[in-house]
Amino acid sequence: MAIKPLKVQGNLQSPPLDQRSRDLRRLVIDALDGGGRGHIGSSMSLIEIVRVLYDDVLEFRPGEPDWPDRDRCILSKGHGCLALYAVLADKGFFAKEVLKSFCKQDSFLGGHPERGKVPGVEASTGALGHGLSIAVGMALAARLQKRDRRHFVVLGDGEINEGSVWEAAMSASKHQLSSLTAIVDYNKLQSYGPTAEVMDLEPLADKWRSFGFSVAEVDGHNVDDLRSTLGALPFDKQKPSAVIAHTVKGKGIPFAENDATWHHKSRLPDEQIAALYQALEDE
């Protein structure tokens, strides 16, 4: 397919968030409220990516999370787990009420997702730069087992500072793993500040291309755009694919958008939680 290059600087001109995107964000705030903490900015930028993956792209069975033929999806930026938990709960992998137990002592929903604890989570992530290599192994396994499934890895922009990501990228390309797609949540803010200042990633699409990936860029909050791009995978039958999703950190919460201080928040007072819910009403 012809992939339209997307040059995005500053705020995206995304369409307004629809009801479903706002509902999922409310679930994120439910968990934040329960745990009193969380990587809010990093999760809000991810919502449309995981929404479209689970609504329109992935094959899975919520009642049978280990169904062998499911597509594999790894949230390599494990700190964005609130977005994943919201979607998994919405899909029925576990009850929405469980979100309230986020980070509590006996909960299975920790501050980073764990395989074997959270139904639907394929790998324990949180230490950055691990997911793509694991997915390379899974994709090689699928080839050996002649299973026709796909593998998705969602990476953070700060995360891809890690050299291990690029080791994995070389390996995916060497093995021509067209069943593998890396999606970068490119919100352009890492923990300390702008990626352009902390560790500039540009030219990012060219980097992935030069590592042997077929690359598309999308507006990561435009659901139609995400659907059509992810629906066109693989972009090349001989190559792994990379989707650079241009996003806004804290998307949907105007006072948190593009603000590095909202990367992670703890000890959120009730009035701030109320303000987060209210912001979604106003959106």
């Binding site: 790998a123 290599s133 390379v136 899974m138 090689l140 396994a141 699928a142 050996l144 994995a168 390996s171």
Partner: peptide, 27 residues
């Protein structure tokens, strides 16, 4: 098909082995 030589990239080698093991292989 079961022999891999993956270059001077130990981090990837271990992650890849993990992925294979998650799917039932013994690397």
């Amino acid at each position: 098909e079961r022999f891999f030589m993956e270059g001077v990239a130990e981090q990837n080698v271990i992650g890849m082995a993990a992925g294979l093991a998650m799917e039932g292989f013994i690397p």
